[in-house]
Design a binder for these strands. Structure first.
Lengths: 144, 144
DNA sequence: ACAATAAAAGATATAAAGGTCTTAATATAT
DNA sequence: ATATATTAAGACCTTTATATCTTTTATTGT
């Protein structure tokens, strides 16, 4: 569904959100350990998230990453996916045709549209705050 | 959503279905030209489809590929996807966790499940015959 | 039997995704 | 100011997906 980078990005963002909610700033090592991801690769992804203003990055001693509490409910999964994977999942044709459109649909166009719209809607309405609460309350899990 | 190989596989199967409906057997060259795919790569994919008994392959002069008319309504998109991409799209966790399950769900488990089930259902109920009819009737398109 | 045609199989090449390593930049505390 | 902690940036490596090329096998018509 998503690239590995995007999976790590979502995991990381949720974990940072949980910690930020408790006023904890977290560093790369901590994050990659908690979400079970390769450290150096995760660093790259956090850079991307930071550039896209999904998370804040603070250098130096006691530095790390966090998310503004007020922003947390505004950050949706769609923002993370867009920042890492781009809009391919939204606009891409199910059969890979560049010219596929409502006017000139590929054979699966309409069927895919339904599913894609559901996915799109889910991503656009699911907030990082919401996901972080489930994790905090022990209802969901982020590692093995 | 799917691999390139799977996209080509679906395109090819639909095209072969259209032709088989008119009792035409089609060769690799014709197929890859019609569906706008790399010829040699398409050959590999057709081999896979043939091994998985989704299409028939006939060697020699006047050889090529076809699909039994009676089978056409029984072949669903899910069969093609399974043959080429495997079951990752069904069972895979949205965040890439191996251990993700209903009992130990990742933060997006339930939300993804809804979308995935819709996709699964669509793939399992959409037949190659159905798709080939839209194409034959000029309602849908397979190339640029 | 032989030549021609077409797919199968296997080896190889190229591109993209996934991942690491090294050096630079920035902030903090002493 | 200096040493230390931490992320940023860029170069690099590895693996997988995508794609091609060559040789073999099967089928048909003559």
């Amino acid at each position: 569904m998503f690239s590995k980078a995007c999976e790590y990005a979502i995991r990381a963002t949720i974990y940072i959100a949980v910690q930020s909610n408790q006023d904890n700033r977290v560093g790369l090592k901590d994050i990659s350990k908690e979400i079970d991801s390769p450290e150096a690769f995760t660093a790259k992804i956090l850079q991307q998230l930071s550039k896209n203003e999904i998370i804040n990055s603070i250098k130096g001693p006691n530095g790390g990453f966090d998310i503004d509490k007020k922003e947390m409910s505004k950050i949706k999964l769609s923002h993370i996916v867009m920042a890492i994977d781009g809009d391919a999942i939204y606009k891409g044709c199910g059969l890979g045709f560049k010219q596929c459109s409502d006017k000139q649909p590929c054979p699966v166009h309409d069927k895919f549209k339904v599913v894609r719209n559901e996915l799109k809607n889910m991503l656009e309405t699911t907030s990082v705050l919401e996901l972080s609460l489930g994790l905090k309350n022990g209802l969901t899990f982020l590692h093995r």
